[in-house]
């Protein structure tokens, strides 16, 4: 099986343990991981599923830039981010992050930085489809429908 790089946009379920294994290093005593999953409700409406798309070349480049920035800012060994694209069912993982470090504190900080920043700076777009039959909506970085 072809190995997935540390930064990837994938149209299949994300396997957190595979990503965590990719960042493991003999010198790293800590691996911190984060997963974002699809909620079943949004502002009181029942969500049926999500669809993600991206400007893929730019999104990959920006994620790689964020991982490099995390390695500069914190004493970490490695960082990886996988983001799902396409249709994502309720409860599935939409984003997975893993950071390894000699000690846990910088790994936690870098992981937090990556998820907080990617929401604002990486050109990934999310559309929510509802079970109540109402119109699907595009959701912005604040988690709210984009106002027009």
């Amino acid at each position: 099986m072809q190995s997935i790089p540390l930064v990837a946009l994938l149209r299949k379920p994300l396997d957190l343990s595979s990503l965590a294994a990719l960042v493991e290093r003999p010198s790293a005593g800590a691996v911190v991981t984060f997963v974002g999953t699809t909620r079943n409700r949004h502002e009181g409406r029942p969500v049926r599923y999500l669809e993600y798309e991206a400007q893929e070349a730019l999104a990959r480049k920006e994620l790689e830039r964020l991982c490099a920035e995390a390695r500069e800012k914190w004493e970490i060994a490695e960082a990886g981010v996988w983001h799902r694209l396409g249709k994502v069912e309720i409860g599935e993982t939409s984003v997975a992050i893993a950071v390894s470090a000699a000690h846990r504190a910088p790994a936690f900080d870098a992981c937090r930085f990556l998820i907080d920043t990617l929401k604002r700076t990486v050109p990934v777009f999310k559309k929510e489809y509802f079970a109540d039959g109402g119109d699907a909506v595009w959701v912005g970085p604040d988690g709210k429908p984009v106002a027009l």
Binding site: Q55, L118, K119, V122, P123, F125, W138, G140, P141, V146
Partner: peptide
């Protein structure tokens, strides 16, 4: 495939991606 800002020059034949608010994560 690089971000540009409003004052940046465009050139003949450029491919410009217009990107609405991001919703990753």
């Amino acid at each position: 495939d690089e971000f540009v800002e409003s004052g940046d020059a465009l050139n003949e034949g450029d491919r410009v991606d217009l990107l609405p608010p991001f919703g990753g994560g």
